[in-house]
């Protein structure tokens, strides 16, 4: 196991950010830590990359304890934080050479490594421009390149595409995908289910500083069910009457019905409602979103906790 945590806790004042987190990651895996803001995603990465000391529990990275053997941990990992940590007033090339020198590359080797990475991340043409002039996507790519200078065994990516436009996001995903093929273990956090789906072979959902789900993207989506039909009626009474016919849940004049997403099912629902003289104004179909995943997992979590205290 390249990452092993046991009962990891971290508090800021009276707020518990990590609440006994147990997590293991196998070498070569791509793990996505998914969760809403404040779930403890960034804190987990900060503890594992030795930036923050945990208050309790243990964490080992490549067999080294993050508190007692921090220097050894730092030798094998790289971190790309939430905000592109690049020097605006240095050029792309200068940023890369600087990191290579800090990683103890000799001067010629540092320059060669910079050229190699600029090429790989499509930054050769912009190499000698100051980063201030780069687009958001270029900055993130440079940031990622800087994390790869020393060929880490484990790479932490904290929300690698937050704030990027769709095209830059796809480019970034391709770059991360290439790393996976190189065998680098990747530990990333994200708020986007799509991102986790595309990159990770394992998704861990965090809520209130603990793990509430752990599995593949498909397993996660199946856990919240398939498509949902929202049927809007002219009044709440009509919606309630329709529920007696086709089932589902009512919220005001809206009735939500679980569906398999097929046209046949939609036809049958509408036919049944027509027969019952319940007039539907509008129909819309929804695929499960990350919100649905969170809502269902968080609700389940709250119910479970209520069960424990009762």
């Amino acid at each position: 196991m390249i990452v092993e945590t046991e009962g990891l806790t971290k508090r800021y004042g009276s707020t518990t950010v990590l609440n006994g987190l147990d997590l293991t990651v196998a070498e070569g895996a791509v793990l996505a830590l998914l969760g809403p803001n404040g779930a403890g995603k960034t804190t987990t990465i900060r503890v594992l990359s030795t930036l923050t000391r945990p208050d309790g529990g243990t964490a080992r990275v490549c067999g080294f304890d993050v508190v007692r053997e921090g220097a050894d941990v730092r030798g094998v990992i790289s971190l790309t934080g939430q905000y592109a940590a690049v020097d605006e007033e240095q050029t792309g090339r200068e940023n890369l050479v600087m990191i290579a020198r800090l990683r103890r590359f000799a001067r010629p080797a540092a320059r060669a490594r910079a050229v190699e990475l600029l090429e790989r991340f499509g930054l050769t043409d912009a190499a000698d421009r100051r980063v201030r002039t780069y687009s958001g996507g270029m900055r993130r790519r440079l940031d990622l390149a800087m994390s790869l200078v020393a060929r880490p065994r484990l790479l932490f990516l904290d929300e690698p595409t937050t704030g990027l436009d769709p095209v830059s996001r796809t480019t970034m995903w391709d770059a991360i995908g290439d790393l996976v093929r190189d065998g680098v273990t990747i530990f990333l956090t994200t708020q986007y289910l799509e991102e986790a789906d595309r990159l990770a072979d394992r998704i861990v959902v965090l809520h209130n500083g603990g793990v509430v789900a752990d599995g593949t993207a498909d397993a996660l989506k199946n856990s919240v069910g398939g498509t949902r039909l929202d049927l809007v009626f002219s009044s709440a009474e009509d919606a309630l009457r329709a529920r007696d016919v086709v089932g589902g849940a009512v919220d005001g004049p809206t009735l939500s019905v679980p569906s398999d997403g097929s046209a046949v099912h939609l036809h049958r629902v509408l036919d049944d409602l027509l027969a019952a003289r319940a007039g539907v104004l509008r129909v819309s179909a929804h695929r499960p979103t990350l919100d649905d995943v969170f809502t269902s997992l968080v609700l389940a979590d709250a119910t479970a906790m209520a069960g424990v205290t009762a």
């Binding site: 930036l51 220097a71 730092r74 939430q82 940590a85 800090l102």
Partner: peptide
Amino acid sequence: QKGVVDRFRSMPI
């Protein structure tokens, strides 16, 4: 503030 220190602190320097 810009996270540059975080990058340096996650490196063996």
